[in-house]
Simulated assay, not measured.
Amino acid sequence: MAIVVEHDKRKHEILEKALEVFIEEGYEDVTFQKIAERCGITRTTLYIYFKNKREIFLWSIKQLTYGIEQELNEIVANENQTSEECLRAMLSTIVDVCEENKSLFSVLLTYLLSLQKSGDEPGKRVRRRVVRLQHMLSTVMIRGIKEGEFKKVNVKSANEMFYGLIQSAIFRLSVLDEKTIDDIRDTLNQAVDGILTEK
C-alpha cells in the first residue's frame, strides 16, 4: 500500500512541476526532458508515470480542474448559505481562479488550437472538463427557484449566460492580456441580480 501512496504522491508532484514548465515555456516548447529536469528525475523515470508530454499536460489540467471542483462542491454543500450567496460565491471563486491562472489559459488556448489544426474537436474536450461545473451551477439555480429566491427562469439559458461570461473572462485575460476583469465580476453579480425574485 505504501508503494501506491508514494507513486501517487510522486505523480502529483510531477504534475504540479510540469504545469509550471508549461506556463513558463508554452505547450509547444515544452519537452519531456525539460519536465524531467524540473522534477529532478531522468526521462526514463518520467516514462514510468506518463507516456508523453500531451498526457502530462492533460493530467495537469485534470488535477487543476479537480481542485476547483472540490472548492465549488464545498460552497454548494454549505447549508448556511442562501442559494443567492452560494451562486455569488461560486462565480467569484471561478473568476478568482481565472485571474490566478491567466498564463495557464494562454497555454491551454495554444493547445486547443493545435488540436483543431490536427482535425480533433477541442470543443468536445472542453465540454467534458466543464460539464460538472455547469451541473453545479444548475443545481444551485434549481434550488434557488424551489426556495423562491430566484425567478422561474430557464435554467439552461441562465447557465449558458453565466458560462458565456466566464468564457469572456478567460478570453480577456489570456488573449487580450487584460490585467483585471473586475467589470466581469460586476456583470456576473448583475446577472445574479436579474434572476432574483422581488423582495
Rank of each mutant, 00 (worst) to 15 (best):
I166Q: 05
T139Q: 15
C86H: 05
E121M: 04
L87A: 08
N101I: 01
N154M: 04
S114C: 02
E149D: 10
I170P: 00
G164F: 06
M141T: 09
D182C: 00
D182Q: 08
I166P: 00
E160I: 06
D120H: 13
I142V: 09
K146V: 12
E99L: 10
R128H: 13
Q167Y: 05
Y111F: 14
G123N: 14
R88L: 15
L104S: 02
F150A: 10
M161R: 13
L113K: 10
V130G: 01
L133W: 01
G144P: 04
N159H: 03
E71G: 04
L137I: 13
E160Y: 10
D96P: 00
N78V: 03
K117L: 04
E178I: 01
L165P: 01
C98A: 15
G119H: 03
I75T: 15
A158F: 01
E99R: 11
E178M: 06
K62F: 05
K124H: 11
S114Q: 06
L87G: 04
F105E: 03
G67K: 14
D120W: 07
P122D: 14
I94N: 01
S174F: 04
N154I: 06
V76N: 09
N154C: 08
N78D: 15
A77I: 01
Y66Q: 13
M161P: 01
V140Q: 12
Q63P: 00
K102Y: 01
N80A: 11
C98F: 07
T82L: 11
L112N: 12
L108H: 10
V131M: 10
I68N: 03
V140Y: 12
Q116V: 02
N159Q: 08
E121Q: 07
